[in-house]
Amino acid sequence: MTEEVELGQPHTLRCEVIFDVEEKSSRKVQWFMYFGGDIQKMTLLHMEQAQEKQMFPKVEVTQKSIIKEVTPQHLKHTYICFASNAVGNDNVTIKLQKKMQVKWPSLVGYPFACFLLVAGLGIIVHVKWLELQLIFRSHFGKLDGEEKQFDIFVSYVWTVPSAEEANGLSPSSKPYTETGGCKSNKKMQSSEGPIEKLLPQVLEDQWGYRVCLLERDILPGGAYTNDVVLTINSSRMLICVLSTEYFANSNAVFVLESGVKALLQKSAPKMLLIWTGGTSSSFIQPEPPLPKLVQRALKVLPSLQTSTDTSPTAIRSFWTSLQKAMPAHGARLASQDI
């Protein structure tokens, strides 16, 4: 037989033998131990007082030997319970085996860890739900089939022109042709201007989009907030040209915030941010602080960064990226160079 034991714990060797009742008792039950398979060198173990239970015409004898503390050495020993009387004798051999302990803390810990994982994911999703919605609607949302008054609503605040802000982009030359090629340096250098001036011209005059500019296309005298909301809902896409001056202008920030709110609706327009003058979402610290909704949206909305590099490659890269971000239908690209 094999009995499982725990190291460092006590263990009781228990032997139960049933004898026939004898007129003169000769029954004997003993525990022996030997090591290394040499049965000739058995050692008698210390035993408790034998207990007898009368079951006429039988008698049951229980003999115990207690190991006070199980050590690895005990696992190498062989234990024999030897029973004898006047009729004959019998024995049983026992080996001790280390008990495979079930790690209850782990079994309990796995469900608890799973619970913490699910709860943690739930908290993250709850906290980041707004960002997740904006990401999904920005990258995977589809424009509805409703006809809009404008293709692009461009929102910007004029900045002081400089050589860096000009970016070498020419309003009178075509920066990105129908075939995706970059025009010659001669045509690209015909004139320069800030992105706030170039963008509407390129979108409208060269790419054929219906562009809306607040100062040009919205009649004066109306309620500004209503005009902004109606214009956003009447456009297929909102482009915000972001700069330090933009964030310092409460009206411009209102346009941006209204665009984010519209994006969270089912029939939302697309949004694109164009960062200028070295600004980015990680460095802007306007006064007063931006609304929380805008701060969170700036981190996840699709965006482009104008480069201070005036090389043809950098210019072409910006306009190519902008072209790809435009709505897939509704654009009427110029068929020939201007």
Rank of each mutant, 00 (worst) to 15 (best):
T71E: 02
M55K: 07
L132P: 10
L96E: 00
Y246A: 01
E48M: 11
A297L: 06
P269Y: 08
V21W: 09
S243P: 13
C114I: 15
L304V: 02
S311K: 09
I124L: 13
S258T: 12
K174N: 12
K98H: 11
S335R: 10
T225N: 14
W104E: 02
L219E: 15
K197W: 12
S106F: 10
I124D: 11
A83F: 07
P302T: 03
E215V: 01
W31C: 00
E16G: 03
Q336M: 13
D227E: 14
F150Q: 04
P312E: 03
P111A: 04
Q97D: 07
E147R: 13
V102I: 14
R137N: 13
E196T: 12
H126M: 15
S191N: 15
A86G: 09
A331L: 08
F318C: 02
K148G: 07
T62H: 03
E23H: 08
R14M: 04
N167H: 14
A331D: 06
I338A: 12
I124V: 15
Q336H: 04
K183T: 13
Q73R: 03
A86L: 09
H11K: 05
L290G: 01
E287M: 04
E146H: 13
T244N: 14
R316W: 04
V253C: 11
Q305L: 04
E6W: 11
R332N: 12
I315G: 08
A297W: 02
V125D: 13
S317H: 06
E48Q: 08
L116F: 02
P286A: 06
E178D: 11
V102M: 09
T2D: 14
I39C: 04
A119P: 06
K99I: 01
L198Y: 15
T2H: 10
S26G: 06
S321I: 02
A119T: 10
Q305E: 09
E204T: 12
F35T: 03
S138W: 08
F318A: 00
V118Y: 12
L293E: 06
K95I: 05
L242H: 13
Y246G: 01
V154L: 15
D90A: 15
N251E: 11
K324N: 05
V127E: 13
E16Y: 01
G277K: 01
S170T: 10
Q133A: 07
T93A: 11
L273D: 00
F19K: 01
P111H: 10
Q305K: 10
I80L: 13
